[in-house]
Design a protein around this nucleic acid. Structure first.
Lengths: 156, 156
DNA sequence: CCCTAATGTTGGCTCGGCCAACGTTGACCC
DNA sequence: GGGTCAACGTTGGCCGAGCCAACATTAGGG
C-alpha cells in the first residue's frame, strides 16, 4: 500500500546539484546499457576511437590523458579494440617504451556507428528539453567541468 | 614529453551530454570524498535523514523508494545510522513486516551539519558558474530527471 | 654514469547499482 | 477458513568503474 505517495523525493535532494548529477549519470548508464545490449561495447571504446580519429595515432598514455581514463583500463580497451581489428598497436621505434595506436578503417566506421547510437541515447536522456535548452545545458556542464580539469587561476 | 598538448579532450566527447554528465559525476564523487574524509559518512546517510525529516517516520522500503536506493543498501545505511543514534528502528506493531524508522534529535543535527558541508561541495563543483547559472542548471537537470522518474505520457 | 621519470602491464581494493533468494507477514478472494 | 499473491527486511552475490601500487623496461638530464 502506497507506492505513489511515498515515492516523492525529498526536496533537499531535488535541489542539490550533486544529487541531480549523480542520478542523471545513473540514467546515462542504464540508457547506454540498453542501447548497446548487443554486447560488443565498452564505455571507453567510443572515447578512444574518437581521440584517435581526431588527433591521430598516439601512445596509450596520451590516450588515457585525453579521455581521462586510467592507464590500466586503456590496456584492456585497446586489447579489445585491436582484437576486433578496429585499432593497430605497434611498438614505437623512436621510443621503445611506447606503443603507437592507430585507428583502422574499420575502426573509423565503428566510431560512426557508435556515434549514431550514442546520439539516440542523448535524445532519450534529454527528451524533456528543447534543442536550445540542450545546448544551454551542454555549455553549463562544459564550463563546470573545465573549471576542474584546467584549474583556471591561482589566488596567491 | 608532451603532457600539455596531448591532454586535450576529443571534441566528440566534449559535446556529448552523457559524457559531460558522467564526468561531472566523477568530480562529485571526488569532491564529496574529500569533504567527508573524516570517515563517518556514506553517500546515502544524507538522503535518508533528509527523507525522514521531511516526510516523518517511514518504513525502510518507503525510504528506498523516495531516495531511489536499493533495499539492501537501506538496510546497511540504517544499521550505521542507528548505531550512531541518529535514527531509531522500531518494529511496526500494525504491520509486523515493517520497521518504522524515526529520526532522532541527533540525527536532525547531523543532517544540518552534512547539509552545510554539502553546500560547500556544490560551491566548488559549480565554482565556474554564477548563481543564476546554477539555478538554471538545476532546473534543466531536474526536468531531464523527472522525465525519467515519472514517465510523462504514453503515446498510444 | 647515475638518478629520476615515463611507459605498458598486472593485480588488487572499494564503492555503487543491480538482482535473486529466503522466511515472515498482510491483504485479498473464493 | 484456507489459499494465493504481494510486500517487507535481510543476506548474498555479480559486475562495472575509479583508484592506486608495483614492476620491469626505457629515456632523458645532471
Amino acid at each position: 500500500m502506497a507506492t505513489a505517495a511515498d515515492s516523492r523525493t525529498p526536496s533537499r535532494l531535488r535541489s542539490t546539484p550533486s544529487w541531480l548529477i549523480t542520478h542523471l549519470a545513473k540514467q546515462v548508464g542504464q540508457l547506454q546499457a540498453a542501447a548497446f545490449a548487443d554486447g560488443e561495447w565498452r564505455r571507453y571504446h567510443y572515447a578512444l576511437l574518437a581521440a584517435l580519429e581526431e588527433f591521430g595515432p598516439a601512445s596509450q598514455a596520451a590516450l588515457g590523458r585525453r579521455c581521462q581514463i586510467d592507464r590500466s583500463y586503456v590496456v584492456e580497451a585497446i586489447n579489445e579494440l585491436s582484437d576486433q581489428g578496429l585499432v593497430v598497436r605497434v611498438a614505437d621505434p623512436t621510443d621503445r617504451r611506447r606503443n603507437t595506436i592507430t585507428i583502422t578503417e574499420a575502426g573509423a566506421q565503428r566510431l560512426h556507428q557508435l556515434g549514431e547510437t550514442l546520439d539516440e541515447v542523448q535524445d532519450s536522456l534529454l527528451a524533456a528539453l528543447s534543442p536550445e535548452e540542450r545546448g544551454h545545458l551542454v555549455r553549463l556542464l562544459t564550463r563546470a567541468l573545465e573549471h576542474h580539469t584546467h584549474p583556471p587561476a591561482e589566488t596567491p
